Simulated assay, not measured.
Amino acid sequence: MAEARRWNFRALRVDDDVPIRELLCDFLARFNIQSRGVTVGVAMRQALTEETFDVVVLDLMLPVEDGLSLCRWLRSRSD
Rank of each mutant, 00 (worst) to 15 (best):
A29R: 15
V56L: 10
A4I: 04
F53A: 06
F9S: 05
R10P: 01
F27Y: 15
N32A: 13
L62G: 01
V38N: 03
S69E: 10
D79G: 10
G37A: 14
G67E: 02
N8R: 14
E50S: 11
L68R: 14
L60W: 13
T52C: 05
R10C: 06
L48P: 00
V56N: 05
A2E: 08
D17Y: 14
A11V: 15
R10Y: 07
A2C: 00
R30K: 13
V42Y: 05
L70P: 01
D54F: 11
R13Y: 11
W73F: 12
D17F: 13
E51F: 13
D66W: 03
V57R: 03
I33L: 07
S76I: 00
P63C: 11
V40D: 14
L28P: 03
L24T: 03
E3D: 08
C71W: 00
V14E: 00
R36C: 05
D66V: 02
L74C: 04
R6Q: 13
R6G: 09
A2P: 00
E51V: 04
P19W: 05
L62Q: 03
V57K: 04
W73K: 02
W7K: 13
E65W: 02
G37H: 04
F53S: 07
R72E: 15
V64F: 10
L28N: 05
R21Q: 10
V42L: 09
M61K: 15
L48S: 02
E22R: 08
E3V: 01
D26H: 14
A2Y: 04
L62Y: 03
T52H: 08
R30Y: 12
C25L: 08
R77V: 06
N8T: 09
L60H: 12
A29Y: 08
D59G: 07
R36E: 11
D26S: 15
S76K: 14
V14C: 04
D26Y: 12
L12R: 03
F53E: 04
A43D: 13
A2T: 08
D15W: 04
